[in-house]
Design a binder for these strands. Structure first.
Length: 711
DNA sequence: GACCTGCTGCGGGCTG
């Protein structure tokens, strides 16, 4: 039977009315598999290849919507994505007479109440709203979701390898718990690594044996152009901005400059050039600190601008599948930290099938150029970095224990233990560790034991009844910036935030007039000139493979035709500098350059291994400094034989945990990477730190095979 | 220099 014939009559009519000549490959494959089987599937296919329909056409053909309850639950990492998908799915569902409901923090209350009265059809939700439902509506959640047939998870890669992902995994497990029948899961993504045959992904869905991957690997033609403009100051060179302007002035463009401050610098800089030369006025900035309504306006403008060109300077806010219509060009300024990120960004351009994507990769320093080239070569080899999933997520366990106890309002110890042990996201955590954590919660008044039952304790109430409880990630405190009642965005309280200081925000220039420290508000007026805003944050980690590729490029003699003259010259100089070292094997050989006062160890390894090396060197009194972006560390020359010392270190698990316990006691801020870690017993804090923040295993195998090449 | 993501329930003020 053809895929089209396998679909139900109303769905066939939908396709007919849409005027689709044929189904996309990923849609054909999904229909052939989803309709006749009850497996879980993950559909992997590039952006704009029709993944949403690939999931919903067969699911809607198959599901019996006449039964009680919500039948299909769609989970998305972003509210903006839910709002986009709602419009598409609702149109499709008009053919079936099936209601669709948005359920997130900004969705209409009326629609939610209607759903509670008549649970039916399809619900689109965020993980945090699902968590809130478990905590505040434990009875209604059964009423709503006890008859699910399908759960669809959009942008599933964005959840893998993070605490938010483990949280979602736990919620799925709890959802399955309240269902009498097994529901099927369909995940959607454009970027998933197939290292180890997708085992992380399959385990994430809780049923590895019955989870299949459907992947459309059809490549997409991309015209990549590298351009090198060295920056001599913290600001971008005017040559670079002028070049970007010329390359993008007649197109619909997205620019990714990697940091919010730089996003503003680029948006304002290009706007000024355009003003001077009489170009278009549609220069915008889009990142987490631009006011939400402003961002929505920018998205709306991009989506609905058929004739007018525009240029949006943005961070990863525009990396996922929010619908902004057709983009002709993507500009990346300095290297992405991952291949996955590069794929998502490239995927945003040339969404029309017949058009190739244009990609401009600018670099402002030699190391960034090198990493950029490494990412590009790995991308062409179809490599995507693996995600590291923490198998013992004690922090998520603690959070979910509070959530489960709150939902049950009173639970026997054995009952609680049983529910946690049955949760697939905690399957690698030993039973006695779970017991120890529950006892600790009772000891610290997060839980309270009354008779034979556990309830939420006095301290626990403060956490559970706070709106901050529903998420596993934390956000810094920012000051709201507005101009005469018009919201513009947010700024952190930095040294820059002073009266009369001028600053860029939302692609415009402002003068700070008033700062209210109580209400955390900043009042501004328009200004003519200013500086880029200062934001604080941690850079994302880069994996070992990218750094190793960088060394490979240095050792190779390949000439890359995608580089401009300045890029060629920069790579040539890097090769020349390292040519005095006799490096043969990029997998094992690493360079140490001994200078007069310092030695430089060119590690060419991951950010996590850098942190681990740094921790070990601190412990053994080797004075040093890590430079992650240039893949190196400088070491005081008096510590001459640090290489021998490092390779001589053999730390067993117990010693590492003891050392980390001490580190946490000396520097509690070490736990800032996790929102809930501070409520754990010290030993589990140390274990979590070891697994999530450091990489002792990777560091050990890196050091074991290491061959130091010195001058 | 340095990414991103989400949010209940209730009360007060306003509109129709």
């Amino acid at each position: 039977m053809t895929s089209f014939d396998m679909l139900s009559a109303p769905i066939r009519k939908y396709i007919y009315d849409k005027g689709w000549g044929s189904l996309r490959p990923i849609q054909e494959a999904a229909i052939q598999r989803i309709i006749p089987t009850d497996n879980n599937y993950v559909l992997i296919s590039r952006t704009a290849s029709g993944k949403t329909e690939a999931a919903f056409l067969p699911i809607l053909s198959k599901v019996n919507f006449r039964e009680q309850g919500v039948k299909v639950l769609y989970i998305s990492p972003l509210i903006a994505l839910i709002n986009d998908q709602f419009i598409r799915v609702e149109k499709l569902c008009e053919y079936l007479d099936v209601p669709v409901t948005k359920w997130h923090g900004e969705a209409a209350k009326g629609a939610k109440e209607k759903l509670l009265k008549h649970p039916e059809g399809i619900v689109l939700i965020t993980p945090e709203s699902l968590e809130a439902m478990f905590v505040n509506k434990p009875y209604q959640i059964k009423h709503l979701f006890a008859n699910l047939e399908y759960v669809v998870i959009d942008e599933i890669h964005s959840f893998l390898g993070s605490a938010r992902g483990t949280h979602l995994q736990s919620l799925l497990s709890r959802l399955q718990n309240i269902n009498s029948r097994k529901f099927c899961i369909v995940g959607l993504s454009a970027t998933v690594s197939d290292v180890n045959r997708y085992i992380e992904l399959k385990e994430f869905l809780g049923d590895p044996e019955n989870t299949k991957i459907i992947r459309d690997k059809t490549p997409k033609p991309i015209n990549a152009v590298f351009r090198y403009f060295a920056s001599t100051s913290p600001n971008l060179s005017s040559d670079l901005l002028n070049d970007v302007y010329v390359s993008t002035k007649n197109s619909k463009t997205l620019i990714f400059p990697n940091a919010r401050g730089r996003v503003e610098e680029v948006a304002v800089g290009l706007k000024k050039i355009s003003d001077r030369l009489g170009g278009h006025q549609n220069y915008f900035s889009h990142h987490s600190s631009v006011d939400k309504e402003v961002r929505e306006y920018v998205e709306f403008f991009a989506k609905n601008s058929s004739v007018q060109n525009f240029c949006i300077s943005c961070t990863s806010t525009l990396e996922l599948g929010i619908d902004i219509g057709n983009v002709d060009e993507v500009v990346q300024i300095d290297a992405t930290h991952s291949i996955a990120s590069l794929i998502q960004r490239v995927g945003r351009s040339g969404r029309r099938e017949d058009r190739a994507s244009n990609l401009f990769l600018y670099a402002t320093d030699p190391w960034s150029l090198l990493q950029s080239v490494a990412c590009w070569l790995l991308y062409q080899e179809q490599y995507i970095e693996p995600v590291s999933v923490n198998k013992k997520p004690y922090d998520v366990l603690l959070h979910q224990t509070l959530s489960i106890v709150k939902a049950h309002s009173g639970m026997m110890f054995s009952e609680l233990l049983e529910e946690i042990c049955a949760n697939s996201s905690f399957s690698r955590i030993e039973k006695n560790d779970i017991e120890a954590i529950i006892r600790h919660l009772a000891k610290t008044d997060l839980l309270e034991k009354i008779g034979n039952e556990y309830i939420i304790g006095i301290e626990g109430e403060k956490l559970v009844n706070n709106k901050d409880f529903y998420s596993l990630f934390q956000t810094p405190v920012l000051f709201k910036v507005s101009c005469q009642g018009v919201k513009i965005g947010e700024l952190p309280l930095s040294s820059q935030v002073r009266i009369d200081e001028n600053v860029y925000l939302s692609a415009r220039i402002w003068k700070i007039q008033d700062i209210d420290y109580e209400t955390k508000k900043i009042e501004v007026i328009p200004a003519r000139d200013g500086k880029k805003p200062i934001f604080s944050g941690d850079p994302a980690d880069t994996v070992h493979k990218i750094r190793e590729k960088m060394l490979e490029i240095i050792l190779s003699e390949d000439q890359y035709d995608f580089l401009d003259a300045a890029g060629h010259e920069t790579i040539r100089e890097l090769r020349k500098y390292f040519s005095v070292f006799e490096v043969k094997n990029p997998e094992t050989d690493r360079i140490v350059h001994h200078g007069q006062t310092n030695s430089t160890f060119y590690t060419f390894t991951s950010s996590k291994i850098h942190r681990t090396l740094s921790f070990m060197m601190d412990s053994f009194g080797i004075e040093h400094q890590i430079h992650d972006s240039s893949s190196s560390m400088s070491i005081k020359s008096t510590d001459g034989d640090f290489a021998g010392v490092l390779q001589g270190i053999h730390l067993d698990e117990i010693t590492i945990v003891q050392m980390l316990e001490q580190l946490i006691q000396e520097k509690p801020a070490m736990l800032d990477f996790s929102k809930w870690a501070k409520y754990l017993p010290l030993r589990y804090q140390a274990k979590l730190l070891k697994e999530s923040y450091f990489d002792f295993e990777g560091c050990h195998s890196f050091l074991k095979n290491l061959n130091f090449v010195e001058n």
